[in-house]
Nucleic acid binder design. Structure first.
Lengths: 327, 327
DNA sequence: CTTTTTATGTCAACCGGTTAACAGAAGAAA
DNA sequence: TTTCTTCTGTTAACCGGTTGACATAAAAAG
């Protein structure tokens, strides 16, 4: 509104800045990227022109040339879940602090969506992908050279996976229920056909049960499973749910049936996200170190992007048992 | 691993496909974009070459030329919040279904972050921005020509704002507490200095209170505010919190003080996101039509992107009162 | 056997930056 | 005054696609 003729409608470009400052395109580029010799006077002139014209360098053009976008693709089931919401928050935060942006993909655990997202991310030339979705194998063969890191999901033979120490978490949860005197402990988990490190929670549960001469009994989450569990096992007195949302459903159903928690039934979940802790503080749970997971995942990805190789594939971070009122 | 020489290391490009298929660059481009005359035979040859070489068109190069990225920037405080998590999920979903991708920005309500994100999104040539962050004015002057839509936040004089019918929600919540016999009703809200449509919740509260000859009393959320409220108002028997997380804190504090809900104190929140409903089903609340809000916001943004103008600025979507056990 | 339609090719400009190469001018040091 | 730094400019190639102009060949229609 103040100046002459340039910013009528078209986007301001490098040339316009050069003209305004009375220098060449090259000089402007040098100022903006701090390369070569530049006098203070010219630097100032250029910066003033940038200000005046409200110039924003076209990162697309830049990306094309330098063959790098500084964009990371995130593929997760959904932000509408306290654990993933928190994880994605931290991932984005860390990326941002390191100069990377984040393209968000909600796969909803659907193989077709994940596939098309993957294709899309490649087309968009993302520098790398962090995925915490299902479906081993999809990412694998399609995708030989793009830097990849998995969170709680195996993606291929040699892509790093970051997860909480699921086995230890499962052990701690089961042991707690046993210590609290539960006799009939049932485990509820996601589909074990998804080969995820989270299956170790169940494995630990089974091992601990057997060690203590108990009979392990697992149900896979699904329609009406919780009702079924109560119907088939009226004597159940301990439930280890493989995530907090399932645990909360268990609590709801117990309440409906007038089963007193923790007197008659003890419940422990898994995840311990901030939101669950806030809305359901009475739930005992195994808390994952979300921020540390995010941190490590990003660091491992950037290492790959920078061409460094890392031989370690599996990374396990320690969990934290939170004992609250449901046990 | 199967083929000849092309895919040793370098990314496959249009030229490689053209060579492989024995046609020209132009022809490949025509096949991929369905332009001009192409025989079935050539189309097939090209597609086979694309398959064989595992070619992914470089969207960056394409974007540069067509001057459009099909990327939408999302600026919200954090995905680590049930309401925003759900909103962002839907926004991404709708964008995806319309061929747009989403760059995620967690502003954490910080003015400096929002500013630098805005700058970043412009550099990345996003086609538009949907923002639900604080700070009226920031987006305004910096940003005259980029298509913008606000969710529950005024961004400038003439950027569309989509929100739930906050006034009606505030009215319904307050009226419910009155109907249930509450005599001393307190409202807790976010900082009113942020000029957001959410302030209408408070306005409605005050209006309804006055209409009923009650004295309206609002507190701004902050450190220890909830304790203060109970300390200063031992006779409080109704609380209308301007979001569900605050309501849950109120419930927690009431429990600590052995105040029985709903017998001695009735509580109602605002938002009614899926996660809160799941983890805290007993909380009465005003539910926002999250998916519809997302839908409308995206539609309004795309209209702007396509150059259509829309005179309506404020869009209010109906809320839904959920009466549960806390009232 | 023409004429028209359909199919394909070559060529070059373009999108908006970066960068290397080379040249020349001003200022400081010898 | 001469030489060496430091500063700035011009030019052109390049990143990987898209697109319009123009030419030509084959197939279909008249």
């Amino acid at each position: 509104m103040n100046n002459t003729n340039e910013n009528i409608n078209q986007k301001v470009k490098l040339d316009d800045v050069a003209n305004e400052a009375g220098v060449s395109k090259t000089t402007v580029s040098r100022v903006l990227n701090n390369r070569g010799y530049i006098s203070e006077k010219t630097r100032k002139k250029v910066n003033e022109a940038v200000e005046l014209l409200n110039y924003h360098p076209n990162e697309i053009a830049r990306s094309l040339f330098i063959n790098k976008t500084f964009i990371i693709g995130l593929i997760f089931p959904t932000t509408n879940n306290p654990f993933y919401g928190q994880l994605i928050f931290h991932l984005e935060n860390i990326c941002e602090s390191l100069g990377y942006k984040v393209l968000l993909c909600n796969s909803e655990g659907r193989e077709d969506k994940e596939k098309s997202y993957l294709e899309m991310l490649q087309r968009h030339q993302v520098d790398g992908i962090i995925a915490g979705s299902h479906n081993r194998g999809i990412l694998e063969y399609d995708n030989p050279q793009l830097p990849l890191v998995g969170i709680d999901r195996y993606l291929s033979e040699n892509t790093p996976v970051v997860s909480s120490d699921n086995y230890d978490g499962g052990k701690k949860a089961t042991q707690l229920l046993i210590d609290k005197g539960c006799k009939k402990i049932i485990h509820i988990n996601g589909s074990p056909s998804l080969e995820t490190p989270a299956n170790l929670r169940r494995e630990a549960y089974e091992d601990v049960m057997k060690e203590n001469q108990y009979y392990p009994q697992s149900y896979v989450i699904g329609e009406n499973v919780i009702e079924t569990i109560f119907n088939e096992n009226p004597d159940v007195d301990g439930i280890f749910a493989s995530d907090d949302l399932i645990a909360s459903s268990v609590m709801k159903e117990a309440k409906r049936r007038n089963i007193n928690i923790p007197a008659d039934l003890k419940v422990i979940g898994y995840d311990g996200s901030e939101i669950t802790r806030m809305l359901l503080p009475e739930l005992s749970t195994i808390q994952q170190p979300v921020k540390e997971i995010a941190n490590l995942a990003v660091r491992l990805l950037l290492k790959q992007i920078e061409g460094e190789t890392e031989s370690q594939i599996e990374w396990k971070l320690p969990v934290n048992l939170i004992e609250s009122e449901t046990t």
